[in-house]
Design a protein around this nucleic acid. Structure first.
Lengths: 235, 235
DNA sequence: TAATACTGCGAACATCGATCGCAGTATTGG
DNA sequence: CCAATACTGCGATCGATGTTCGCAGTATTA
């Protein structure tokens, strides 16, 4: 008569790490997440296959499913692990804009450390793990003295994360998996030289050496834009 | 003796649509791209598999590779097709900020029409097709009277596209493939209620009904932020 | 007309995420 | 103390994916 057949919990964190009966697991979610992180850092996110990860851990692919319900859950764990890398120890200073910008810079730095994070963050249906929740609460604490409704603040925090991802992606060296930048540039120049795109041609000939700025200037631009954006969202 | 074994062209558009010898192809890149677009609109990007697309076109999967070198190239074609949907007919009015904001709004609207576009746009190593190049030239034409170097303008245009993607994603209804928003919200509330996240708890109880704004207000916020951002980038 | 270079495509391959079911092991209840 | 129970590890396997191979047929070229 019990018709319960749905799958109520659905997130990694709502399921117990292990059962109470059988033998002790030989690994842990933490260990597996760490190995996945190392693999992603070294060879990129696509290289994090269940098989490759299992091999790295010296086990079979099927075994991983004792710890993780699916590869997607593994990605959730990875994302939350990176969220845990952020330093939330500093208490809000009262300068909410400055504090929030600092948080965003930390977030952007995390993206630089883990180039695959951007691809993780724009999956649909993101799930907030414990570290992400800590982050959220911290950001809300920072925003306590700021104007705006709770809804506006939540939106601002979400947007902030998206912006960190966006800027990190734009700052990422094209090296990472990109096809062939010089060839692409040559193709662009060739098309522009056909005469139908005068402004593009002008821009390409003018800006021969691209004005790639150093990390400090990149951060400064990011900060400058945030300091204009955030007040406009919360006013 | 000829050691040429590399693959020089590498983009869909640098390869001829068809050879000069054999029978006339039964389909065209245009037709295939259109079918892929329809499929993606109807069932999402993951549903655009070579097999499903072939079936929709009444052919075998292998045949598609006569028109497209890989699935990735197909995605390039799709992205450029959407770029072709933008209306670039209006000549620059002299109000570069207004014109550029209009372009960004168009771009955001395209994302709303094609929810999968966001996932396309944040692939690495994007390739610019003819429509994308037209777009780029148009944006540069708009920016002609604006201050800033060519490099800054190119960066601003790129950022603009990223922002349109970002905002479109944030405005997308959680419906699209999202797991279970209410359950996630309940989980969040439960965690917050444990007492360790007071600000989160306060925000969740305060903002019971989320202040989802209408499309008009969304666009207005987007425009407001852009009008603050762009001058800051080009000054 | 013969050589050539294409087109369509069935069959197959490698790789992926995921499931099944069995053997072994620790906990539980009587 | 001992079955019943519920777990763990994992080899074998499934279904789906992108992609390649090779062949038969066809239009162009010389």
């Amino acid at each position: 008569m019990a018709e319960r057949e749905t799958t109520p919990p659905t997130t990694v964190w709502s399921r117990p790490e292990r059962g109470a009966r059988g033998p002790a697991p030989e690994r842990s979610r933490y260990e597996i997440t760490g190995a996945a992180l190392a693999l992603a850092d070294a060879e990129g996110l696509p290289a994090v296959s269940m098989r490759a990860l299992a091999q790295r851990l010296g086990t079979g692919p099927a075994s991983l499913y004792r710890y993780v319900g699916s590869r997607d859950e593994l990605l959730d764990l990875m994302a939350d692990a990176v969220a845990g890398e952020l330093d939330l120890s500093a208490a809000p200073s009262g300068d909410w804009l400055g504090d929030l910008v600092g948080l965003a810079l930390q977030s952007k730095a995390a993206h630089a450390r883990h180039p695959w994070l951007a691809d993780l963050n724009d999956r649909r249906g993101e799930v907030l793990g414990p570290h992400a929740i800590d982050y959220l609460d911290h950001a809300l604490a920072i925003l306590a003295p700021a104007p705006g409704t709770s809804g506006q603040k939540l939106e601002a925090i979400g947007l902030l994360g998206g912006l960190a991802t966006l800027f990190a992606r734009r700052e990422a060296p094209a090296s990472a998996g990109a096809g062939d930048p010089p060839a692409q540039a040559a193709h662009l120049a060739a098309v522009a030289a056909e005469g139908r795109h005068p402004h593009l041609l002008a821009a390409l000939t003018t800006a021969g050496p691209p004005p790639v700025a150093g990390p400090a200037e990149r951060d400064a631009l990011f900060e400058r834009l945030l300091r204009r954006l955030l007040p406009a969202m919360l006013g």
